[in-house]
Nucleic acid binder design. Structure first.
Lengths: 261, 261
DNA sequence: CGGTGAGTTGAGCAGCCTCAAATATAGTGG
DNA sequence: CCACTATATTTGAGGCTGCTCAACTCACCG
């Protein structure tokens, strides 16, 4: 492990860790470099907001694409992704979700269909009933601020994805995505050295990058033949981070601690 | 005018209307079908949050791409757009801004460079100092909720743009963008019948859609030769809304009133 | 009347797409 | 443990969409 021992091992988060019954013992809050600390009062407010937990198996839908979900969710462990489907079946993956990420907020203010969220691994979720959202904002303005923070952070990632899809060539997009996902997972302690349990197949990558499956495959092969990465057996290994970052125009910026619910 | 007379004429908003000295007489709040009403107390809180107004000429930068802006802004009149530039100069337009839209929120929680915002017409802005944001949330949780609402709404539009850039052909993207901008402007009362003062050139459209300038031109010409629209002299005219909506897979959904600051 | 920016058009190229088929790889039932 | 099936990956071939390069027009302006 590349991580020091003074924090709980979180490779676990990629596996199935049950969220605790009490938010007071929430594992996520123990990751001080990753998530902002929460006071006892805040934890109690979060606990009051939360209605329970939910498990979804790999491949299952957390939020249906057509219906407005009755709950918001915080991803507690595992990987998920947001997506949209066009009427003729073409799919676009909008965003990848890791532990601590909030989902379902966009639905709050929507009329029509929005997006779906699918579990990429087995996933544990904390569920928050939508009808309690406003009172949560009302009684805990700081938590409202936290939610806005998370929304703004996700929007920034969407900005980056839009730049990629709009203005970058295929190999640049692939390099960018691999680095992006690896860095985010690394920050959460889900990596081992340069290796990462990677639950996505080439169709996922293609749908995230706006490429065809075939061309995604050829691009991946080109990069791996050039020794930049290896991706097999569900493990992503970053062999030449510098070259990948360069190619993807991906600047590593310090990731600041963010709030969690 | 296609709008009934029982609301103030807002073609004005596309021109240069000076925001009032007092938020209590803010024109935007008078548009009851468009924006949620605000109580006197809320208007006072907004007025206390606001530090003043700002004018930017067409083409001027409202927010610099490299620096974190010291203020949030509400666009009061005119058009603007958010964009990002790659190190080699390629540009991607992320989002188009109309009156009532909030900008600068993403910067709040960012480290590195984020995005720039440029005025497409002369614009009037209400400025809110960043350092008052938290106390605004704290003392007016309802306004915090409103800000989250606006952020979530913008994120939904980004989702749509991402789907377009990733999974739609050029003519579909163009049709989608024309309908999208026209419908949003129409909702604000900035159109006259099927006509709209359109401040963007083909390079803007290309940069929003992830296309080259030349191909954007050829696609626009194809659609206008087919009688779907006309775009000349800074005026966009929608000639066949049904065909454009069909082509762009653009479903008109009722636009709900949103909060304004 | 030259200069600049925006729009238009043609020619040729290439990046990415679709179609097709050949391997893995994994899971399932006998 | 092996056949059988479904899913994921890989590769080739050929074609179209969208790109780059280049040139010309038009409007506007000093």
């Amino acid at each position: 492990m590349s991580r020091p021992n003074d924090r709980p091992s979180l490779s676990l988060l990629a596996q199935s860790v049950e969220p605790p019954a009490q938010c007071g013992t929430c594992l996520l809050h123990e990751l001080h470099d990753v998530f902002l600390p929460a006071s006892d009062e805040e934890r109690q407010a979060i606990a009051a907001f939360r209605s329970g937990t939910r498990n979804v198996r790999a491949g299952g839908l957390i939020i249906e694409e057509r219906e407005r979900s009755s709950h918001l969710y915080t991803l507690y462990s595992g990987w998920a992704f947001r997506f949209k489907t066009l009427s003729d079946g073409r799919r676009q993956i909008l965003h990848f979700l890791l532990p601590g990420d909030l989902m379902g907020l966009q639905d709050e203010f929507a009329e029509g269909r929005t997006h779906g969220v699918q579990a990429a691994t087995d996933v544990r979720l904390c569920a928050f009933p939508r009808e309690r959202l406003w009172s949560f904002f009302h009684t805990q303005p700081k938590m409202g601020y936290a939610i806005t923070w998370l929304a703004a952070r996700e929007e920034k990632m969407l900005d980056d994805a839009l730049v990629s899809n709009g203005r970058r060539a295929a190999s640049e997009r692939v390099a960018m995505l691999l680095m992006h996902l690896f860095r985010r997972a690394e920050h959460l302690g889900m990596t081992e050295g340069q290796r990462l349990a990677f639950p996505f197949n080439q169709q996922h990558i293609a749908d995230a990058l706006g490429l065809s499956l075939v061309h995604t495959n050829k691009t991946l092969r080109k990069l791996s033949r050039a020794g930049l990465h290896r991706l097999e057996g569900g493990v992503l290994e970053i062999l030449d981070p510098h070259a990948l970052a360069q190619l993807g125009d991906y600047f590593e910026r310090p990731i600041r601690p963010v709030p969690v619910l």
